[in-house]
Structure formats: structure tokens, C-alpha cells
Design a protein around this nucleic acid. Structure first.
Lengths: 223, 223
DNA sequence: CAGGACGATTGATCCTGATCAAGCAAGACG
DNA sequence: CGTCTTGCTTGATCAGGATCAATCGTCCTG
């Protein structure tokens, strides 16, 4: 399938597009364009004024926050179909984090002005934005609970279980992004992540396929 | 000042009310009422279907999330003027956390139906909601960064600095909520909070007034 | 094919903050 | 007015995960 039509399918099936409705979206999309970036590229930097709202069409992007003198973490990972950093765009406030391409990515760039105008003009688009932000808020709540309450091994198990449930069918947990990024998202070092994976494998909750991909027993993982 | 008019003032000055505009708000407020609850009361429970959007008029409320077998944390603290749990109301999804009154509170109860209808009818109210959610998302991002990257003592210092800056004028950091709640919000035990406060005091970044209230040197705290 | 370079894994040790356990101050109540 | 409760503080010990360090495997490149 060529890129153009795959983009359209992905777009139209995304929850955000669904909620906003085709009418409002085509308007906003008129000003948008797609871009392909290699692993390691930065979509924007912490502190920048937001010029674009992004929708990830393919690949994986990490939101990396750095703190003077204390290193950096991955605040969130986004996969294909996700629209991100609506918060900064809506508030016209500098990004709190840098967006890094963790794999090669194809990303739809929606100019911030066009988006804000769309939100102003279209009530449906505004409502869709509200739902998007509400969902994202809840994801962050989940993460806070995870980091504060669960052990490193638990967090890894839950992360894998979540990945498995996204990958409909096969009990396969894809981890296309570098270990260091996943570890940072989970609030641990790569060493700890590695050990947790080893432990889970040893407990039989996980095994490696011939290709090295992780195959998980979902029911075993969630407990 | 009697409660009724104080309520009106607080309401009209809140960022949410400002953004939504008086017209849309009066409509929504028609169905609302205020309630006074003692410390320890629960406004709603984790898992409940949201029946109300809440606006805190006085006092302090904590969002407490509990995890089977791993205890519970305070995900967020809300003070007077804050509107909370718009996310659950917007999505019609069960609350992820329990709301506990950490002091005696006066709270405006906005029926979820009335609010959702208001958002559907009024584009301004919808825009105000996106701004509210965007702000709340950023608060959670801040917290994730804090918990993952900073030491307990740093988090306490930053928390105090923030409280001081809210308390315009006097370098006074109010802590009306129980220590255990603050500690949980900061991702530590009450013991660790206590020790951190002692250390900051000893470093001269903090002192106690005659009444026992904490007085902080803001510039010293932030570094 | 040798030589790096980089990411993941494994091993040894250390440190922050949790846990367990007393003390202590202040209000509640018979 | 004593005692009981509750919340905060202080002390001693423990453990989960970080850090430091070495090894391994894979890919890249000359």
C-alpha cells in the first residue's frame, strides 16, 4: 500500500479523527504535511514555542524531559495513530519536553495556527481535543501510580502486558525502541530493565522467539 | 463575607470561569449546589461513575489512588479555585482515584450531565475545558519528572517553593493538609518528609514561625 | 576479515529512602 | 487531671535499585 493511502486509512481510523469528524479534519489537514525522520531525530526541543501539532503515522516517538543537573527521563512514548502535545499547542506555552524519534518515523505535521483556528471554528474539533487531553491526563495518572507504587519488575511486566494487548492476536510484545528509552519511560536504568526481563523469562512469564522478539503469557504477566 | 458572595467572587476569578465566560457558566451553575464536608470525607471513590464535576471553593482535596496489594498514593492535591476530574466526566469513564477532603472543604458540585450538556452547547465552555485539561496534563508531566529525576529532599524543597509562591507576599508555606498526604503526593513516606524538612531547616532554607508555620527562603529553596 | 563502536547483558558494590520501632507533643474525653 | 488517641519526629536497620565496571554480540567499515 502506498504511503498516501495508508496515511489516509490510519488517519481516518484514529480516535481523534473519528471524534472530530471528517468535515473539521479536512479543513485542518489542508495546511498539514507529512515528514519522514530517521531514528534519533528531534521533532522539537524542550522550551520551544509549539509550531506544530503532531500525529504519528508510523514508528515511535519519546517525550524526553531533561532537568538541569539530574539527567533526563522519558515522560511518555507515543506509537502510530497518536496525536501529541496538544497541551502545549492549546496553551501556547513552551514544550516541557523534547520529542525524539525512537525509530524511523512518519509524522503528520499540523501547523499550530491551523489547529488552534480549527478548534476555535469547529465545536466538534474542540470536543475531540477535550477527549484527547482527558485520555492523555489519565495515562499520566497511570504512570504516576506505577512509578510511586510498583516495583521495577512489576512495571516491566505491566508494560509488556500492555504491549501484548495492543498487538492483537499473537502474544507478541514489540519493543522497537531502544532499551534505554523503555527503561527511562519506566523510571529505571537499562541495567534494571535487563534484569527484570531476565527474571520474568526465568519465571516462565516470557520467552524469546527465534527472531529474538519477546513472546509473553499475558495472563501470567498481569499478576 | 458571607459564603454565598464569597463563592461568587472565587468562582468569577477562577481561570476556568474566566475562560468559559459568564454566559456559559450561569447555565451550568443553575443545576449546581455547594456542599461542606469535614476532613476525611470522600467526595467520590475510585471506580465510581462520575456524577459530578467538582470545583473546590475552600480547603484542600487529595486524589488518592490505591493499587491492590501495593498500598496507595496521592496522585494530586487540589486547592481552592480548582476544578477537578473533568477527564473522567468528559470520557464518562470511572474515576481512577478517590477524592479525599484533607481539610474541611466547601465544594461546588456540578452535575456531570449539566456539564457535558454545557460543553456540547457552548463552544466557549468547551474551549475552557481543553485549557483546563491541558494545564492538568502539564502538572502531571511535572510530577512524573519530579518523581523520576529528583531526590526526596529536592522534591520537598520545590514543593515548598511552589507553596510560597502561591501565598503572595509573605514567604509563608502553608501546609494545612496532613503530613502523610503531602508525603504521598511527593512520592515518599512521612518519615522521609519529616527528615527532609529537618535537613532544609538545618541548612537555613527554612525556619518555623512562633505559630509553627513554615517560613521559607524562596531563592534558597529553588536551588 | 580485523578492528571498532554501540547496545544489551551480567556482575559487584553502594546509597537513598523504606521499614520497623520508639519517643513526644497536643488535643479529646472520662 | 490523668490517660488515651492521633500525628509528627527521631533512631536503627534493611533492601531495591543505582552506579561502576567488565563482557558479549551484532553491525558497520576500512
Amino acid at each position: 500500500m502506498p504511503n498516501a493511502s495508508r496515511t489516509r486509512t490510519l488517519l481516518e481510523n484514529s480516535p481523534f479523527f473519528q471524534a472530530a469528524g471528517a468535515a473539521a479534519m479536512t479543513e485542518v489537514l489542508r495546511a498539514s504535511f507529512t515528514q519522514i525522520l530517521p531514528r534519533g531525530a528531534r521533532l522539537f526541543e524542550q522550551g520551544d514555542e509549539p509550531d506544530f501539532l503532531h500525529m504519528l503515522l508510523e514508528g515511535s516517538v519519546g517525550l524526553q524531559a531533561q532537568v538541569e543537573g539530574s539527567g533526563s527521563t522519558m515522560v511518555e512514548l507515543f506509537g502510530a495513530g497518536e496525536v501529541f502535545l496538544a497541551a502545549a499547542v492549546v496553551l501556547r506555552l513552551p514544550y516541557l519536553a523534547t520529542a525524539v524519534a525512537l525509530t524511523e518515523v512518519r509524522v503528520l505535521m499540523i501547523p499550530a495556527d491551523a489547529f488552534r483556528e480549527g478548534v476555535s471554528r469547529s465545536h466538534d474539533l474542540c470536543k475531540a481535543t477535550t477527549q484527547l487531553l482527558a485520555r492523555h491526563w489519565r495515562l499520566m495518572v497511570d504512570q504516576v501510580v506505577d512509578v510511586k507504587l510498583r516495583t521495577a519488575e512489576d512495571r516491566v511486566a505491566r508494560f509488556l502486558a500492555h504491549r501484548v494487548s495492543e498487538e492483537a492476536g499473537t502474544g507478541n510484545a514489540a519493543m522497537p525502541e531502544p532499551r534505554a528509552a523503555i527503561a527511562a519511560r519506566l523510571g529505571m536504568t537499562p541495567e534494571t530493565l535487563s534484569r527484570a526481563l531476565a527474571t520474568l523469562e526465568q519465571k516462565g512469564k516470557l520467552r524469546r522467539s527465534a527472531t529474538g522478539a519477546l513472546v509473553a503469557d499475558r495472563t501470567a504477566l498481569s499478576k
